[in-house]
Design a protein around this nucleic acid. Structure first.
Lengths: 152, 152
DNA sequence: GTTTCATGTAACTTTGTATGTTACATGATG
DNA sequence: CATCATGTAACATACAAAGTTACATGAAAC
């Protein structure tokens, strides 16, 4: 399976935005991430709908942070993406008539459900502010890869 | 992403085999699972290499259980499949130069590592014998879907 | 008010992976 | 030696994520 990198991607965008005042166009963000503006708009759509960011059209438009970073968790962001499925493995048949399949599904589901609960709980413990703080530590004197560099 | 159902599939095969004496040809097993004999051989190859099952060619050949069901866990089976990746989500870049990417990866990796550890631990707690017992409970007087039926 | 810029979104293309299929080599049994 | 069964490579299909193109919508600048 091809792995879904939207969560990783959208967090990258958000941290970028947290480093300097906006607004940022989709194109600017896309260049910084080596991707396409439309991809940026797609992964940001859910965040906009939930009010974590705002988007404006026209001159001087683009994306702006619209939330307190300390109040938004990775879980919130994950939810904003539409809660995409977390696991690369699944049951052969979801509603099987076969009793063997049912027994297998029951065992696997239990393990996967536990793991999912833990994962989401961990996501819920990490705020964007924590990520941003961690980033600043890593930054030290160094620069980002970076958006400004790309446009210098 | 398309989800990997090999673990689910191979467990189904093993439980089938545990219900009645073998050997079972790949074709028989494939019919019971609505799939192809080659798929069966593929998902069984790892188990054979680790000695959990044996395969024999020629007349009267096929697959036979070669382990104590109470000593093989879901984790063993998962390992026999080659420990396929568990999560549908991943980092955009695995070894990023960008510090933002590093900060994001670090946070996500920690959560995913925890979830993976829990999941594998759960897998390690469930033996094939437990699955088989659970299946027998579910069976009651009912039949499987079943292999014998398919050949009646 | 018209040009320019930016998002919103549908439609299509590309790419990666799991699964399904065909074909044939290898080896065991009768 | 004919038949049966696995082993495996090679190819086909299906599907989802990501990338791309095209164009509509709306805001700001002139």
């Amino acid at each position: 399976m091809k792995r879904d990198s939207r969560l990783s991607g959208v967090l990258h965008v958000l941290l970028h935005m947290a480093q300097q005042p906006g607004p940022f166009t989709s194109e600017t963000l896309a260049k910084a991430m080596n991707t396409n503006p439309v991809v940026i708009r797609r992964i940001m759509a859910g965040l906009r709908d939930l009010g974590y960011v705002r988007s404006e059209k026209g001159h001087g438009g683009g994306w702006t942070l619209a939330c307190e970073l300390s109040k938004v968790t990775l879980r919130d962001v994950y939810t904003a993406l539409g809660s995409p499925s977390l696991f690369a493995m699944g049951n052969r048949t979801e509603a099987p008539g076969c009793l063997i399949e049912q027994a297998v599904n029951a065992a696997l589901d239990q393990a996967f459900d536990d793991a999912e609960a833990l994962l989401l709980s961990r996501f819920g413990e990490v705020t964007l502010a924590m990520l941003s703080d961690d980033l600043r530590k890593r930054l030290g004197s160094r620069k980002l890869h970076s958006m400004s560099a790309h446009h210098a």
